[in-house]
């Protein structure tokens, strides 16, 4: 341990390492550009267009040129990974009736498509009415079943 401490330290910034120091520094400078992070943020997110300053900078800076290329490649790749969905052949025939019912709700008023209060109310009441009707049907089926059971039991007792 003592030997290591006593050993003369060879610093990178020492005069003797002048050439190595500059080659490391150049390498470090070439790795990053102060504008690169902003450029990535611009290309990946919010900005619709890259500002003129950055457009000019891309022309000069090789690091940012590489970044721009990588970003456009990534965008293309992602676009390619999103599946293309085609409309099924029977889509129009199956939805025509239902969609025309929905479209009929619109009422043209002052050039805009709107729906009246009466139609909205009718739309809400329709499922309720259907439910009531289905309950009535269920009720009548139950009543019929009970009567049939009674008749069957009566016939059974008479036969004995």
């Amino acid at each position: 341990m003592v030997n290591i401490i006593n050993k003369e330290t060879n610093y990178l910034y020492a005069k003797s390492n002048h050439e190595i120091y500059h080659s490391v520094l150049n390498e470090h400078n070439n790795k990053d550009c102060i504008y690169s992070r902003n450029l990535i943020a611009m290309m990946d997110g919010a900005e619709e267009k890259i500002s003129p300053f950055y457009q000019g900078h891309i022309l000069e800076c090789k690091i940012c040129q590489k970044l721009a290329q990588a970003s456009s490649w990534k965008a293309q790749k992602i676009r390619g990974l999103i599946p293309k969905v085609s409309l099924p052949d029977h889509f129009l025939s199956t939805t025509k009736g239902d969609l025309s019912e929905a479209v009929a709700l619109f009422k043209n008023r002052e050039g805009r498509e709107r729906v009246s209060k009466e139609t909205s109310l009718a739309m809400l009441l329709k499922p309720l009415q259907e439910l009531m009707e289905s309950k009535l049907i269920l009720k009548s089926i139950c009543q019929g079943g009970i009567i049939a059971l009674f008749t069957f039991l009566l016939l059974l007792s008479i036969s004995r």
Partner: peptide, 17 residues
Amino acid sequence: ATQLIIDSATKLCLEIE
């Protein structure tokens, strides 16, 4: 997806009011 299209259209008709 088809059902979603139909139901959304109906929902939209009611909400536009």
